[in-house]
Design a protein around this nucleic acid. Structure first.
Lengths: 225, 225
DNA sequence: TACGCCAAACGTACGTTGTACGTACGATCG
DNA sequence: CGATCGTACGTACAACGTACGTTTGGCGTA
């Protein structure tokens, strides 16, 4: 009672489904920008009528949540299990950064419309697992997880905002030298935008600090390499 | 050629101005939510015609940028100048968190529509100043600034997303125990949401790591307490 | 085989949105 | 006193999200 694909003949019409709708939305966002996403555009992309979408998606907001979920579901973290917990944590945060790089124009939506489905919990589960294996007690593990999430989100957010702002700000010299001495002194440094290095810098910083945290009593830190 | 307030008589009509428009927008967002912001609503709030707004604001996007600027302009950081650089950094990040608390429903906009005006550079200037006084070389100073920004942004973003997701997610028990063992084990810890403590925890972590960073050669770290 | 049923695709229609454009009016300046 | 200009206004339009009623094609049952 849910398995009809026009019976035998396969793909005269690929059948409309939630997954196909979300995929079309993602494609469309990456092509024309998040602002250009409309139900009508998605329908056109799929060659169907607008209201047909509503048989599979409650509304636009839900569709956007679907987009967010689709993107985070694309996170690929199966880093070597034998690596140190820090390396695995690194891999996890990098995985988020990677999808952010793969779906740049979807990021605004991912950051805005937090997904709630179980798919979105996968990264949290992974982070908690890593923190637990590292020997932190449960409250510390949750906190570490949250800090890592905040850093992952914040880095991407800052980066997106940066590139968007740099498109507008061309008059770096029009600043009041009395009010912004340090900004002007570091103008070159600020303009040069090695986001990758900055990202790794902050990540190392954070993980080093986490590493220094006390473990749960009786935990053999040396053997958990 | 820009100073007429209906001549003498002061306030029969408070005069329409960009600042008043932005203020009305902020008020409206905090009252009815960001989703309810429309040019028509702003005009109604001010008791003017819709198109009159366009004499002071190029369009809705610009208005939203104005809202973002207004909010970050509300940051108040004049922490004791004699405090250690770490304390001043703490105060700076906290200042952002404070405005986030004062304008909760505006935060989505602040995080999404990065402001580019000079007002928005004030926090950056402050951060760079602190980092410089702490004795970091220019490239490190910029990186530290960026990490702090990422943390400030990310924390708020995570928090907003959290509260929004918790409104929807009531079925914590409906998760597959095989797929999310750690999430379920930490369910209580995750549900309890002492954002303040989490925020301070991460901030301390980060600043401790920054403190351990090497200073620029010849810098007397002890005297910079 | 024939029939009825139901999910899913469709089309029409309504209210709301952002904003382009033309008009009206009061103050300022020559 | 007439010209000019900045600002407020009103109308108008295209595009949006989506509520609602209609059509249709494939399946289970008789």
């Amino acid at each position: 009672m849910a398995k009809s694909v026009t019976s035998g003949t396969a793909e005269a019409r690929p059948v409309l489904t939630r997954a196909r709708i979300v995929a079309a939305a993602v494609r469309l966002i990456e092509r024309d920008g998040a602002k250009a996403l409309s139900m009508r555009a998605v329908a056109a992309e799929l060659g169907v009528a607008v209201m047909s979408l509503y048989n599979h998606v409650p509304g636009k907001d839900a569709l956007l949540r679907g987009v967010a979920e689709h993107v985070v579901a694309g996170m690929d973290f199966d880093g070597a299990a034998e690596a140190s917990w820090a390396d695995r944590a690194r891999a996890l945060v990098r995985a988020f950064r990677t999808v952010a790089h793969d779906y740049p124009r979807c990021m605004t939506i991912v950051l805005t419309h937090r997904a709630d489905g179980s798919i979105a919990l996968r990264p949290a589960e992974r982070a908690l697992a890593i923190a637990a294996e590292a020997g932190f007690d449960s409250v510390t593990a949750v906190r570490v997880t949250r800090v890592l999430m905040a850093y992952a989100l914040g880095t991407q957010l800052r980066e997106v905002g940066m590139t968007k702002a740099l498109d507008r700000l061309t008059d770096f010299t029009a600043l009041d030298p009395a009010e912004f001495p340090h900004v002007l002194a570091s103008a070159d440094e600020l303009a040069r935008n090695d986001s990758e290095a900055d990202f790794e810098f902050g990540l190392d910083l954070l993980l080093a600090a986490v590493e220094a945290l006390p473990r749960r009593p009786g935990f053999d830190q040396a053997s958990a390499r």
